[in-house]
Design a binder for these strands. Structure first.
Lengths: 231, 231
DNA sequence: CCCGAACCTGAGCAAGCGCTTAGGGGCTGT
DNA sequence: ACAGCCCCTAAGCGCTTGCTCAGGTTCGGG
């Protein structure tokens, strides 16, 4: 599903910005390493690319198989249905995103430091792995009833992590937040939407976006900034 | 395309939250009034509902026709293709959203007042008309090359409006914004994403979300708040 | 009373969809 | 050498898709 929006870099030919899910490997401990055998992983990586480019419903099993250099039938040896493929992608993706958030939330430090760290890492993840993130964040509705319920549970945990940090900041007098639930929602919404607009060919690196967003979120909660300014 | 995310209200049976595009009429001067004849409007309204619920690619022309109480063939009397239907929806939707933004940006007042007004109205629009907004904001990629280019141009104008206000605020010393382009991007991203998570059955009204977001955005740009707090 | 225009339908076409099935190569261990 | 297993393909089934087309209904004007 190709999202080219706002002003982040000019709109050039469709798909020209695309980074393949395989390329995204850089800087991470083998991104789909848990998927075996190797043929299944190749299919899954191809599916991530295809789903991200065209969307789940517009992607055909023949396309996925073709990208993996296999016949359409090969897909059904490793996955029961096309929907199961999406489910595995979505589940692994959510678990990884949640892990990123959890890791930062569990560090030592002030609430502001932890919130900034969580946003920075979470946003960087969504930017670096925007191909995966796009599928994970925007194809939820294509899942079947049970699978969707399972994934939504994972999402609630992300929400809980962010809310906890903000609550602690308020309790310790670091933050000024009239509406914790609403602000939590807005913070996560902001981070997640990075997957939609981020463009690998754009002018910003994932690190820069993470830094910018960490600063913006600290302002949203009325925290002291790194440079010492107040409220 | 059903997005049920984060913690805004529990996830109940799918589609139960849906407000039809027809119902959304309330409080606006006939929302699809420019679409004639009446049969074409009925088809278009049905298409908005269907696209918002299932997504463009997962919606069949038979479904759209069925919702309008017509045969599939009737659709092709009023629209050349299914894609043309999406294009008309997308164009009208973008024009209305942009109009909302423009109206607030052109008012008198400080940059902070205008930015708050613009965000409040833009967010309220995305919440109240989230069915339409979801199609408008998240089905861009389903458009053909030329149609997409046309719509992207409209989007750039939204960006320019927000950027102008922020620039003026910085110039007048009202705002403290290190990265105007990035902050503009973030503000619009935040507003647009409301269409994804907003749930009519949720606990927040469009007005409340608009108010919350206007406050959050003023904090993001380091403005004085309505209550007189600083930076 | 009929005309032409506007609008709509029933039936269906060609293409493409997700998925299945029968069968065949190439490993492994014995 | 060969059985047993895993992995894969060619072919294609049954169905749905976007879309078409010949024909029918309704209606205002002459």
């Amino acid at each position: 599903m190709v999202f080219v929006l706002l002003t982040e870099s000019p709109v050039d030919g469709e798909g020209s910005w695309a980074m393949s899910a395989a390329e995204e490997t850089t800087g991470e401990d083998t991104p789909w390493g848990e998927v075996t055998p190797e043929a299944a992983r190749r299919l899954l990586v191809a599916a991530v690319d295809a789903f991200a480019e065209r969307g789940y419903h517009a992607t055909t099993t023949r396309d996925i198989a073709g990208r993996s250099g296999m016949s359409p039938a090969a897909l059904y040896i490793h996955f029961k249905t096309k929907e199961e493929l999406l489910h595995r992608i979505s589940k692994i993706g959510h678990e990884r995103a949640l892990h990123v958030l959890d890791t930062e939330a569990d560090r030592d430090g002030t609430a502001a430091e932890r919130l900034a760290g969580a946003v920075r890492s979470f946003v960087r993840w969504h930017a670096e792995r925007h191909t995966t993130a796009r599928v994970v964040q925007y194809e939820l509705d294509a899942l079947g009833e049970e699978h969707r319920t399972e994934i939504v549970a994972l999402r609630r945990r992300s929400d809980a992590v962010v809310r906890r940090i903000i609550n602690e900041g308020v309790r310790d007098g670091e933050f000024d937040v009239p509406d914790v639930a609403g602000t939590t929602l807005a913070v996560l919404s902001l981070c997640i939407d990075v997957a939609r607009w981020f463009n690998a060919q754009g002018s910003r690196t994932p690190d820069e976006v993470g830094e910018l967003y960490a600063d913006l979120v600290l302002r949203m909660v009325g925290a002291r900034t790194a440079s010492g300014r107040k409220q």
